[in-house]
Design a protein around this nucleic acid. Structure first.
Lengths: 329, 329
DNA sequence: TTGTACGCGTTATCAA
DNA sequence: TTGATAACGCGTACAA
């Protein structure tokens, strides 16, 4: 492995001069620049980033933490992060934790211990206290999912209002027996979307019915089973709001299997506006989030934290997308 | 930021002793160990990895490069890599290039310049020459997709044989006019799968018909359009082999729209055994690759390269999965 | 315009 | 069992 010293020797100058040329800085005689660049090329030198980053106390790398890669929603957000990061000369690396607390801590420690300049957390199992601890010792921002903490800014949508809007739309289509298909975790989105659903019922004076609340795991197959059970139990309903598109699709498959017509008998709404919503037959109404913008904003927040400016939480606008699964009849 | 020096001062020992305790090495008096650990806890010290890695010329990080995250196939492979890596004390970080050559070079340079110990490339636009260059200066292995190079080992399936098997199955169902839906890129999988398709035709003495060859972009919507065009052009066919599951699904949607029965009128086969194959109606026959094993193997190869042992290319077994879209009638 | 010399934070060597 | 000190590779005051 060649070091800067080797370049210096080859070019017949000092290491300081080589460093200056490499960093395009200062004033170095053109002729000297040429000599150095030539030497670099000749011996095939490439600077050791550990040395450089150690000296500069900065890496130009930011991490993005999430639980699983198989998530269409996240990949668009990440694309947004990337766009904003590139503009500022940062590169991003993605850390998939598989929901393991150990993995989460490992990746956090990379930032704490200077292998990266900051981290954007899309989702994690960190408690508010752990998040706060992390945030106290290095730059962290939350994106999409979050725990409420004084010191860790987040960007998200208003999940409660979004769920309210989605439910109100079902109600406006004349539906009253609306199934809520959530997920029993502690993610803020799950909790707020349930509250938004209840807000809408309350506003329309529809009594809350516990039998209409069911839980899945975001996935397609599980939602099929859950819906199947609903039907077998003779629960009567005329609409279904799932907090993920995949669950909406799974529910619809179960409904179709029992010759329950969509949207005539049951209206269905999903969440996230992923590909499956228009790929499915009938196409699925859903809630759209501005993923790219969310990613870009998350990076802006992180950059502010890195540069030790203040960063406020940011709420972006969602949009209700109406498709065939809730078409008014 | 606390340094090891601060711990030494706090504990009243030398930095060398602190380092020894931190690395659990050597023989340090138990009482001293206790003092040091206590001091670490008290001042909240965490070692700077840039310093450590610089000194040890090793990071314990390996990169995984791919073009896009929205790929179910890749995320399973990555999971395999992760499983194997963890066992050996390595952590992985994922680098999404978005097919940009510039991004690819940036991530490669992180390895070249010591911010990571090696890289597993799932797909890239690197030429054989570029791959060889990279491989000459740091540990690289290819996984799933590859370019043929003396120095860069790969693990993959026998794509040609897999496509042959899939096509033969269609032929054995009595089909003769088999559409091949490929992708016009230079990925080895695309090329080999086309050759496998032709192998099967040749073996069955079915003349090759250029009109039955169409191209998409791996995606659902595009495949719909391509199939639509096929139908509008009155091209007659009784089977379709797509080199991705999403394309198979897109084609099926187009067929259904024209009341063409699957599998009665047209049999369809996809590739990769992703979720969509059983989520779709009818369920889609496909080719399954051992993704976890592929990831694990890729890591083994990389580890060999890192430890400067020799590594041979490895071919894993594929499997034909028969579902409703090719059910014999 | 260039070179010398120090410091970034760590581990490894050697001597005590 | 411990401590002093020399690396690791780089950037940058400061001096020339």
């Amino acid at each position: 492995m060649k070091r800067i010293k080797d370049v210096a020797k080859e070019a017949g100058v000092s290491v300081a001069t080589v460093s200056r040329v490499l960093n395009g800085s200062d004033a170095v005689k053109v002729e000297t620049q040429r000599k150095v660049k030539e030497a670099v090329r000749r011996i095939g030198y490439s600077p050791n980033l550990l040395g450089r980053n150690l000296r500069q106390n900065k890496t130009g790398i930011i991490l993005v933490m999430l639980s699983t890669l198989t998530n269409n929603f996240c990949s668009k957000v990440i694309h947004g992060i990337e766009l904003a990061a590139k503009k500022q000369g940062y590169n991003i690396m993605i850390c998939a934790t598989g929901d393991s607390k150990e993995s989460e801590q490992t990746y956090l420690s990379f930032v704490r211990n200077k292998m990266a300049d900051g981290i954007i957390i899309l989702n994690s199992n960190l408690t508010a206290q752990e998040m706060q601890m992390a945030s106290a010792s290095f730059p962290v921002v939350q994106c999409s999912e979050y725990v409420d903490t004084e010191r860790t800014p987040y960007v998200s949508i208003d999940n409660r209002k979004a769920a309210y809007d989605a439910t109100i739309n079902l109600i406006n289509s004349g539906r009253k027996k609306i199934v809520f298909m959530g997920v029993e975790n502690n993610l803020v989105s799950s909790n707020l979307r349930f509250l938004g659903y209840r807000d809408a019922l309350d506003e329309a004076n529809i009594p809350f019915d516990e039998n209409l609340i069911v839980y899945g795991n975001y996935g397609y197959r599980n939602a099929m089973r859950v819906t199947e059970k609903l039907i077998q139990n003779n629960v009567s309903f005329d609409a279904l709001f799932a907090i993920s598109d995949r669950m909406a699709a799974g529910a619809m498959t179960a409904l179709k299997k029992h010759d329950i017509k969509i949207p005539d008998d049951v209206c269905v709404t999903g969440f996230d506006n992923t590909d499956i919503t228009y790929l499915f037959e009938p196409s699925i109404s859903t809630v759209s989030q501005p993923q790219i913008e969310m990613g870009e904003t998350a990076f802006q927040l992180l950059l502010a934290r890195i540069e030790e400016e203040t960063a406020e939480n940011i709420i972006l606008q969602h949009k209700i997308i109406l498709r065939d699964s809730t078409k008014n009849i």
